[in-house]
Design a protein around this nucleic acid. Sequence first.
DNA 1: TGAAATTTGTGCGTATGTATT
DNA 2: GAATACATACGCACAAATTTC
Lengths: 79, 79
Amino acid sequence: MPAIDRESPVPPYIQVANDLRARIESGEIPPGRALPSLVKLEDEFGAARDTLRKAVQVLKDEGRVQTVRGMGVFVLPLE
Amino acid sequence: MPAIDRESPVPPYIQVANDLRARIESGEIPPGRALPSLVKLEDEFGAARDTLRKAVQVLKDEGRVQTVRGMGVFVLPLE
DNA sequence: TGAAATTTGTGCGTATGTATT
DNA sequence: GAATACATACGCACAAATTTC
């Protein structure tokens, strides 16, 4: 299960971003599918919304996901 | 009238959850029936939807209610 | 038929306060 | 002081499922 290592010098939002990126790259969350909702991510990681939004923002900045309002955050096809 | 005590150290969403739980346990809202809609709860408690959804989430986590999209939040039978 | 109303799901942006680093 | 994170809350917009007319 995903977990945040509070002892790590890597900030939680980076850890979450890394975890989600790994799920995308492994094909666990394929293109066209949505990431777990923020509420679910809260449960999974036990992190605050601030942190999770930042993590998603990282993937957005990388062009890996795209937010669709009211629906979720979707994984984009690789270029 | 249910009301949220803003002076209390207990967070509003917990207060709402406690109130709803009491209504369920008293039989005011029996199994199979739905809780008031989020819109009605907004009126009743004067709280934001975010707060009310969190309150409902607490009861969900407790296994007391189940949400059905487009229909409502239903009280589950006791186990 | 289908359109509107109702209700929950999801996300955005913002805000306040606390605590830690 | 600044950055980060947590916890909570407000208000809004749009999506989707269901019910009603």
